[in-house]
């Protein structure tokens, strides 16, 4: 059972630079285990404690698998799986300190 897996740039170190590789498995979980036999280490970048990592998106054809069955999502011959790390971040820290004068933002004079 052949499934095409599209690999993001950041994980191509595991696939000798290939943008897509073939794998097999009845579920995503099996597919990632299969990939790991030929591309050691790749599974751990996608899966943690038996679940998909929070900031790695996996799509079956056009659908985010979080809206399907996650890592248990069933696969069929000819399916295409795409892996894309989330594009995310943010200040995540402290709120604006007191004493910063908001009104200056709009003005050009200081």
């Amino acid at each position: 059972m052949a499934i095409e897996v599209r690999i993001p740039t950041i994980l191509r170190t595991y696939t000798d630079g290939q943008k897509a590789v073939d794998g097999s498995g009845a579920t995503l979980d099996e597919l990632f285990t299969d990939l790991d036999t030929r591309h050691p280490g790749i599974r751990e970048r996608i899966v943690k404690d038996g679940e998909l990592r929070r900031f790695v998106n996996v799509y079956l054809n056009d659908e985010d698998v979080r809206f399907l069955d996650g890592i248990a999502t069933k696969l069929a011959d000819g399916d295409s799986v795409t892996i894309l790390p989330a594009v995310a971040g943010g200040a995540g820290a402290q709120p604006r300190p007191a004493g910063v004068v908001a009104g200056r933002r709009a003005g050009g004079t200081r």
Binding site: Y59, D64, A86, V87, A88, G89, G90, G92
Partner: peptide, 8 residues
């Protein structure tokens, strides 16, 4: 105001 993430 402290986090961003592209919609999947």
């Amino acid at each position: 105001p402290t986090f961003y993430e592209f919609d999947s």
